[in-house]
Design a protein around this nucleic acid. Structure first.
Lengths: 109, 109
DNA sequence: ATATTTACTACGTCAGACATACCACGACAC
DNA sequence: GTGTCGTGGTATGTCTGACGTAGTAAATAT
């Protein structure tokens, strides 16, 4: 079992984005909308945060991108999750469980 | 309801420390040990992280400090939570509940 | 005597999140 | 024909919490 580092708890944007890419490729604007909807408007990801997450994750090999002309005639950058991305996502899910258990002990409801 | 910022999810060291100060003042080494114990060795806070949290929180008015000679004859800096600290702690607890609910939606167990 | 535990302090670095700003295109109202 | 809203981004720079590395010093155990 890996010990928790404090920054464990940071960086779940990547995890949220990867979750939305598990079943099909998607692009910035759509991901942004879906995060907002899924969270019932509780979390609205910033554009800069989103696109820098895309860049970081592509660099790390967790996603790959391709350009495509959408129905509306506009060019869009689509992102799809890689195998390494799926593995990373699963690890983050496990890490989240652990982190949650720990933080819970210091929280009074 | 305040919307969640991404960094909401960071900075729970402060919350953990404040939790341990709710009932009585304490000092660095003890806090460190208690975090370790309470988390079943899953989280071991770094000394630099701990003491910089103390400094930050004192600056923010969430804790105050006093020096005292301990039983073992050594001088120790004790920290105690302030009213502002208690308020902050409660806010962080609420925030944690919210954050947890949101992140959960993007996690597959 | 020396190693370990206790109890810190100093300094520098890194990465993720964010603020601010800008660009380009289409649709649709006015 | 112009304005503005929604779409779909890019560029640049700053901030902060966490962390790596190192050092100090007294007390206690061996």
């Amino acid at each position: 079992m890996t010990a928790i580092s404090s920054d464990v708890i940071r960086g779940y944007n990547d995890t949220m984005i990867l979750y939305l890419l598990l079943d099909q490729p998607s692009y910035g604007y759509e991901i942004s909308k879906r995060i907002r909807e899924l969270s019932d408007d509780k979390y609205i990801i910033k554009e800069t945060t989103l696109y820098s997450a895309f860049n970081r994750m592509e660099k790390n090999g967790y996603i790959s991108s391709f350009s495509q002309i959408a129905d509306n005639g506009k060019r869009r950058t689509y992102y799809q999750i890689t195998d390494a991305g799926r593995t990373f996502y699963k690890e983050k899910c496990d890490e989240w469980q652990l982190t949650q258990e720990v933080v819970e002990k210091f929280i009074i409801k």
